[in-house]
Amino acid sequence: MDATEPVESTLLICPLETLDSSPHHLSSPISLAASKTLRHLRIVLVSPLFEAPSEGSSRGVSHTERWDGVQRLLTYVYVQATKVAQELGRVLMDIDVLLYAESEIVPAFIGTDARYIFRVSQSGKKDGLQNIPTSIADRSADTIWVEPSSYHAPSHSTTDPHPTTTPLHPTESGLPAFFPVTALGGTFDHLHAGHKILLSMAAWITSTKLIVGVTDDALLKNKANKHVLEPLSRREERTRAFLTLFKPSVEYDIVPIVDVYGPTAWDPNIQALVVSKETLSGAAAIEKHRREKDLSSLKTFVIDVISSTEANLDAEDSEALKKTKMSSTFIREWIVEQQKKGIKVE
């Protein structure tokens, strides 16, 4: 396989049995798939732990209760793939991580553009997944079986057996499995892994509608390298496309915003808010504003593993995160540098 030339698009399909720790066993499959991809890598994770709860059934897990495990999982997978892409100079590689329950059929179109399909074997045994469509499963000539990584936690691991939660992270019991209407906001310029973690987690806990506020062009005049900023229409388009791919059952209301509040300033139907640690102050401002307007308080969920200093990452994960730049500022700087060298960036 090492002699195989990289191709435009690939697909990696991995079974997953636990959310209790980072999936270090997937490091080799992710790294190999990313190294053989030039433009677009889709990673499909299949697990019974993604089963949505339903009335009259004992199967399914609460998506709000699984918040920490799923965001840790997404962060690990995105970081591993992004790190390889950046090391190879493929900063604009498009990486999508998708979650499917074992009872769900993976859509056939997921593999349509993939030249190679990577799947995970264990001691020569195939993954045994039953929900893979025949259009993917029958492509034996294009399928590459990869052994999982061996992993031993380093003795200097910083993992805390009782990780703390951020102040605005809901910790009370009795939260609903989903919230009907959730909101989040951001610039979403040159949509990257950090954005996709944020968007994925918001969709993960939402059952009906997700409102996404996208910063209007007028507020971005002071951004560094603003001449390579994507226009609002492009940022909205890419945000909607990713969310529809990740969870097509939810309605997405993508709206331009000119302040920190957006629709949270007036919409009484919003129940939950998703923010990053960097935007916690905005969450506090929203809470204050809604209280003044006699609007209901929002349950705030915080993406708190994107920072490499977090206690719920072990030392190896933290080091990988430090070396991986998941920011629009970095991407714009890279584009400008390529342009200075006379390299066309698409």
Rank of each mutant, 00 (worst) to 15 (best):
residue 251 E to L: 11
residue 251 E to R: 10
residue 251 E to W: 08
residue 253 D to F: 09
residue 254 I to E: 00
residue 254 I to T: 02
residue 254 I to M: 01
residue 254 I to S: 01
residue 255 V to S: 06
residue 255 V to H: 01
residue 257 I to P: 00
residue 257 I to L: 04
residue 257 I to G: 01
residue 258 V to E: 10
residue 258 V to W: 07
residue 258 V to A: 10
residue 259 D to Y: 02
residue 259 D to N: 08
residue 259 D to K: 03
residue 260 V to Y: 12
residue 261 Y to D: 05
residue 261 Y to A: 11
residue 262 G to D: 05
residue 262 G to V: 04
residue 262 G to I: 04
residue 262 G to Q: 05
residue 262 G to M: 08
residue 263 P to C: 06
residue 263 P to E: 08
residue 264 T to H: 05
residue 264 T to R: 05
residue 264 T to C: 08
residue 264 T to D: 07
residue 265 A to Q: 12
residue 266 W to Y: 15
residue 266 W to D: 14
residue 266 W to H: 15
residue 267 D to G: 08
residue 268 P to M: 06
residue 268 P to Q: 06
residue 268 P to F: 01
residue 268 P to V: 06
residue 269 N to F: 10
residue 270 I to L: 02
residue 270 I to P: 00
residue 270 I to D: 00
residue 270 I to V: 08
residue 270 I to Y: 00
residue 270 I to S: 00
residue 270 I to N: 00
residue 270 I to K: 00
residue 270 I to A: 00
residue 271 Q to T: 08
residue 271 Q to R: 11
residue 271 Q to I: 04
residue 272 A to I: 01
residue 272 A to Q: 03
residue 273 L to A: 06
residue 273 L to C: 09
residue 274 V to F: 03
residue 274 V to S: 03
residue 275 V to K: 06
residue 275 V to F: 03
residue 275 V to Y: 02
residue 276 S to G: 12
residue 276 S to L: 04
residue 276 S to K: 02
residue 277 K to M: 13
residue 278 E to S: 06
residue 279 T to K: 01
residue 279 T to Q: 02
residue 279 T to W: 05
residue 279 T to I: 05
residue 280 L to H: 10
residue 280 L to C: 14
residue 280 L to Q: 14
residue 280 L to S: 11
residue 281 S to T: 14
residue 281 S to C: 10
residue 282 G to K: 05
residue 282 G to Q: 05
residue 283 A to G: 10
residue 283 A to M: 07
residue 283 A to C: 09
residue 283 A to N: 06
residue 283 A to F: 09
residue 284 A to R: 15
residue 284 A to D: 14
residue 284 A to W: 14
residue 284 A to G: 13
residue 284 A to P: 09
residue 284 A to F: 14
residue 284 A to Q: 15
residue 285 A to D: 14
residue 285 A to T: 14
residue 285 A to M: 15
residue 285 A to W: 13
residue 286 I to D: 08
residue 286 I to S: 09
residue 287 E to W: 15
residue 287 E to N: 15
residue 287 E to K: 15
residue 287 E to Q: 15
residue 288 K to Q: 14
residue 288 K to N: 13
residue 288 K to V: 13
residue 288 K to I: 13
residue 289 H to I: 11
residue 289 H to Y: 13
